[in-house]
């Protein structure tokens, strides 16, 4: 039953992304577009040139950010830990921009790869500041460290962009996410990277669950906490950086999806990660479609849409979180 809900949401997300918009695209147009070598109607053209790449980008980025969110929350034992809020997205974006400025390479494939070192540095920094290395749990410290890291990177990026006003358009992509430019990205390579990250995460899931019981107990169960943490950080870095490369920094998806996944897929981390891979694209594509329809023919960037949905979700989660002095922080 719950699996059916997950699949229904997934299909609804994909269908809305493909079919809805200024130019309505019906099922026959989609089939036609796939069958015909060259598009024969405007609807088929829109489908092949705009909707399909956009949907594929959303599929990839949604799965990436959502799975990274599930892993991050499990790793930090913090229901508010979203890679975007914690600055990992911003780290990826900043290192892409820096590399582009320094090396002058602007082709999409090279750019995409440059995201990884930045995302890795940001992820490790935030994890250490949140007390993760010693296994203590400091939810408020973690979130505030994320706020600070985000603010730092964002200010630096803004400064760079103001200084290099010639490059404004190129860089705007790296400030707020959108699915509209996915067609220019090496989506196949990025999808492969996301799958690698997801596979690592799913393999590590039982160890992560044991780690959530505390380092002492995890050791007693024969685990090596450091290795598990390093593996999880690598997995979420791979996924986040690939997601940012495809769609730019989109925050809050890793916050919205995990509670949904927990609710619909049950307590097992492995199933949660798998559910995240379906629910992430569903939420992202629905938000993107809403952003395209709300003020058509103009559109709201999907990063802004997720931020608007994510703020209230954050408050709701913060209210539910126990912040007693001895327990959590």
């Amino acid at each position: 039953m719950r699996a059916a809900v997950i699949f229904a949401l997934f299909v609804a997300g994909i269908w809305s992304s493909l079919a809805l918009g200024v130019q309505a695209v019906g099922l026959d147009d989609m089939i036609g577009a796939v069958l015909h070598a060259a598009p024969q109607t405007p609807a088929e053209l829109v489908f092949m040139q705009i909707r399909l790449p956009r949907m594929a980008t959303g599929l990839l980025a949604g799965a990436a950010f959502a799975m990274a969110g599930v892993v991050m929350q499990s790793l930090t034992r913090n229901p508010l830990a979203d890679p975007g809020l914690l600055g990992v997205n911003a780290g990826a974006a900043a290192s892409v921009v820096l590399a582009a400025l320094l090396t002058g390479h602007t082709d999409a494939a090279t750019q995409a790869l440059w995201g990884f070192p930045g995302a890795m540095i940001a992820a490790v920094t935030i994890f250490a500041l949140g007390g993760g290395l010693r296994g203590d749990r400091a939810p408020v410290r973690l979130i505030l460290a994320g706020v600070a890291l985000n603010a730092l990177i964002l200010s630096a990026l803004t400064a760079l962009i103001v200084l290099r006003s010639d490059a404004l358009e190129v860089f705007r992509f790296w400030m707020a996410g959108t699915l509209a430019q996915g067609g220019q990205k090496p989506l196949v390579v990025l999808a492969f990277i996301v799958m690698c990250g997801g596979a690592i995460a799913i393999l590590l899931a039982p160890a992560l669950e044991a780690l959530a019981l505390g380092h002492g107990l995890a050791r007693g169960l024969g685990l090596r906490p450091r290795r598990t943490q390093a593996g999880a950080l690598i997995a979420l870095t791979l996924m986040t950086a690939a997601g940012v490369a495809a769609a730019g920094p989109i925050a809050f998806l890793g916050l919205i999806v995990p509670p949904l996944a927990r609710h619909l897929a049950g307590p097992q981390l492995r199933t949660q990660i798998a559910a995240g891979a379906l629910l992430g694209p569903a939420v992202l594509l629905l938000a993107d479609t809403a952003g395209r329809l709300l003020i058509a023919p103009a559109e709201i960037r999907v990063g802004v849409m997720t931020a608007i949905i994510g703020g209230p979700v954050f408050i709701w989660l913060a209210r539910r979180m126990r912040t007693t002095r001895n327990g959590a922080p």
Partner: peptide, 17 residues
């Protein structure tokens, strides 16, 4: 701490909008 977290959330929402 609850006040700070909820405040952060309100801030996120406001700056998103």
């Amino acid at each position: 701490l609850t006040l700070i977290l909820v405040g952060l959330g309100v801030g996120f929402s406001a700056s998103g909008l």
